[in-house]
Each structure stands twice: as structure tokens, then as C-alpha cells.
Design a protein around this nucleic acid. Structure first.
Lengths: 223, 223
DNA sequence: CAATATTATAAGGTTGACCTTATAAATTTG
DNA sequence: CAAATTTATAAGGTCAACCTTATAATATTG
């Protein structure tokens, strides 16, 4: 019996966002993303393990089971649908929508979710470019290439920001690094240093400097 | 500092629904409506009193302060706006919308609330006929007359169901006792007994029997 | 006005989700 | 491979919101 508590949902979602569907995620990383102590995260992992939502390999990390993946994707579906509603229908802030939708998500029944999906026209992607899982908890593939992988001069179109976070989205919106826009790397500092990008949008291009950690969150498709 | 916890919101809303804006409500009644022990309700009332949200007269009851009334109405505004969205845009069940909107309400910031209100076209009433408080926490008057007050033969139009509850709304939907429909009392059993009503809807009229306790929740306007 | 019912308060318990501190075990790194 | 780091587990604590049981105070009713 999966209890559907708010914090269980947050743990499952974080696990999925950190790659726990296909590989093991160190519990420390989960704790960090949730702003929680490693001990607390460990305790929760025990509970999630008892519910067969995760598989825990000590000193290695934690991986979502098939059941856990379905649950996580169902949480993500709810959140991304709300994001669409907030951005496209309520004209709310693109970056803030992630956090606002997260709150709504916890309060949303499957029935409301599917009615919302119908109302929105069964959208395929959230406003940040990430695929919306289907009602059965299956999710499509995202691009595997990020800005951090681009060669100098290569032009690519931004597809998605992943994983999302209020902070990062806020920052990227300011720099115009939004899905749909074109980017290329002008220069890359050596030793894993920052990138200088050319961001193209409508008629005006602009140069921005971006650390590799953030660049790797911006998924792109080559032109 | 009003903390905006889910249960504080529920207590404030229940108080408003039980008439705590204009008169004292016995704590026992609040406990009953929330499905909570009288002791728990008492504890919470102490906390609400410390936050100046209510005024408690021992052995008499509890009344919302001006601040408490504003808070309660802001909660009610959020919930009723979501009800409109769920019923009018997502085509969800008229009776179930009250409970579904209650969940969403707790997760809704003022910003989302006002954008939602704009999206919905600043509606004046919820699907159950009750007025939607304005953003400052002011609320319009409802009808003072219920079906229980009607004389035999008098025809009236249903305006609202108040206070709402999933159970009651479910029951009334089955009996076709919905806002907008016309009713009259055919017969009233003596000694506060049940009423026999004629419910008119489009072309088909039907007779229904209704206890006084429920009849008094159906607010009407005389024809 | 005495009996019954309601309301208030005290004391102690539970649960979920956190926390800190401390120790032990395993892994990674110099 | 020893030292430093990360991970696990144990022990004990906090907080909000509930609970029960018990007693005391006040109201209402027969």
C-alpha cells in the first residue's frame, strides 16, 4: 500500500530527477536536493524500500523499482500538467511555475489529473521542455546532449532544462536560455572552465557566460 | 505571524461555515464538522486565540475576529475559485468538486489565486451558489431564506447550498435539488417532520421527501 | 435544585518527518 | 595502504496535530 504522503512523493520525484530510474543515486545527493540531512534521507529510504519503491545497495546508492518509477512518473505527470496550466492559461512566471505546480501536485487526485490533461489537450512537454509521462507512468526520452557537450561553433536548439529547480530556471530565464532558442559555444575556458555562449532569440543575439554545471542542465538538439 | 498550516485553514473555514463570523460557535460543533475530538479542537482554539484569529468565550463558544474572518474568507475564496475551474472547465462532478477544491486550496498561493480568478473571469458565485469572497476577504450576502422556511405552495428558486459538504451535495444532486431549479413545498409533516417538495427542472417535475435539517441548507429566493 | 450534558483542562501517548550527535563500516584518495 | 571521506546505524530529541482517559467546572433540563 503506497501511502502517497507529500514527502514520499518528493523523494520519489527527486530520485527520478537525479537519474534513479536507470542508475543508482547516492543517498547523499537525494538529501542535498531535498535540503534534508543524510540521516533523514536514509531513514526514508528504509521506508521506501519496505514499500518496494526503491532498491538500496548499501554504500552505492538507491534505484527506483518498476513500481517506484511508475509512482515517480505519475507525480511528475501531475506536476508538469499543472506547469502547463499555470504558464499557458494563468500567465504565471515560467521559472516560478515549477515550484507552484509542485505544491498543487500533492493535492491532485488521478481523476483531476486526467481531466486536466484532457483540458490542456494532452500536452507532450512541460514549459521547461521535459516530456510529460503518460497516465500509466511511462515517459518519453529527452535529448542526451547538453550545451556542455557542444563543440565550439556548433549551433543547437535548446530543448529542455533538466533537472529543473526554481533557482536554476530563474537564472536561465534572465539569460534568455529558454527552450526553442538557438545557442552556440563561442569559447570554452580550459580545465572545465566556463563557456561563452551566443544566445539567439528572434532578432537580437547576446553573449552569456555560463558555468559547466549549469550548461549540463540545458539539453539541446543539434541543428 | 499566521502560519497558514493546512489544519489552521480547515478550522478557520469550518468556523466561517458554522456561522462564526457573526455569532459564537460551540467548539463541539467545530470538532464534529472536522471529525476531530473535542479535546483536539479545544487545543487548536487556544492556538488560534493566541494568533488573534478567534475570540473564545468559555462555555459559550468561539467567534472569528476581523483578522480571522479575513483569513477564513481568503481560504474560502481559493476553494470556491477552484470549484468553478473543476466544474466548468474540467467537467468534474458538481458534488465532488467541494472536496477536490479543498485539497487544491491548501496548495494555492495568493498569486495563483488571483491569476485563477482572472482566468475564470472573476466569478461571483461557486457552483453551489455561494458567493466568492473578494481578494481582501470581504464576502457578499447570501439568501436568508431556506426551503425549511417556505410556506406550503410557495414557489422559490434554489440559490445555494450552505454550508456545503461532500455528503450533502452528493445527496442533493441525486434529488435534483440544484441551484437554479424551482421548488415548492407540497406538504409538511407536523412536529418538525419531513417536507414533501415539488422540484421543477426543465420539463419534468418530481416529488421528493426531505428532512428539515437538510432543507435548511438549501437557500432560496422567493418567486 | 438535582441530575444530566456540555465544556475545559490536565496528563500522557502516537505518528510522521524531521533534527543532532556519535560511532561504525565501507569506499575513495593522497 | 593509511588517511580522509562518505555512508550506515543507533540513540535520543522536537514539533504539529491528533488521540484517550480522567477530572473539574459550568450549563441546561427534568
Amino acid at each position: 500500500m503506497t501511502s502517497r504522503s507529500e514527502s514520499v512523493e518528493m523523494y520519489l520525484k527527486s530520485l527520478a530527477e537525479l537519474g534513479g530510474v536507470s542508475s543508482s543515486v547516492p543517498i547523499g545527493r537525494v538529501a542535498e536536493r531535498l535540503g534534508v540531512s543524510p540521516v533523514s534521507a536514509n531513514e526514508m529510504m528504509k521506508r521506501l524500500g519496505e514499500q518496494s519503491l526503491i532498491h538500496h545497495i548499501p554504500y552505492t546508492g538507491v534505484k527506483l523499482t518498476a513500481k517506484g518509477t511508475r509512482s515517480a512518473n505519475s507525480v511528475i505527470r501531475r506536476q508538469r500538467l499543472w506547469e502547463i496550466f499555470l504558464v499557458d492559461h494563468l500567465q504565471l512566471n515560467w521559472a516560478a511555475a515549477y515550484d507552484m505546480a509542485c505544491d498543487l501536485e500533492h493535492a491532485t487526485s488521478p481523476e483531476v489529473t486526467e481531466s486536466l490533461a484532457a483540458f490542456l489537450g494532452q500536452p507532450a512537454r512541460c514549459p521547461h521542455g521535459n516530456p510529460i509521462p503518460d497516465p500509466e507512468g511511462q515517459i518519453g526520452k529527452s535529448s542526451e546532449i547538453s550545451i556542455a557537450d557542444l563543440e565550439i561553433g556548433q549551433i543547437a536548439r535548446i530543448q529542455a532544462i533538466f533537472p529543473e529547480s526554481g533557482e536554476v530556471l530563474e537564472y536561465l530565464a534572465e539569460k534568455n536560455l529558454l527552450p526553442g532558442n538557438l545557442v552556440s559555444v563561442v569559447e570554452a575556458e580550459p580545465l572545465e572552465g566556463p563557456l561563452t555562449l551566443l544566445v539567439e532569440r528572434e532578432n537580437d543575439n547576446e553573449q552569456v557566460i555560463l558555468g559547466l554545471n549549469i550548461a549540463s542542465l540545458i539539453l539541446v538538439a543539434l541543428k
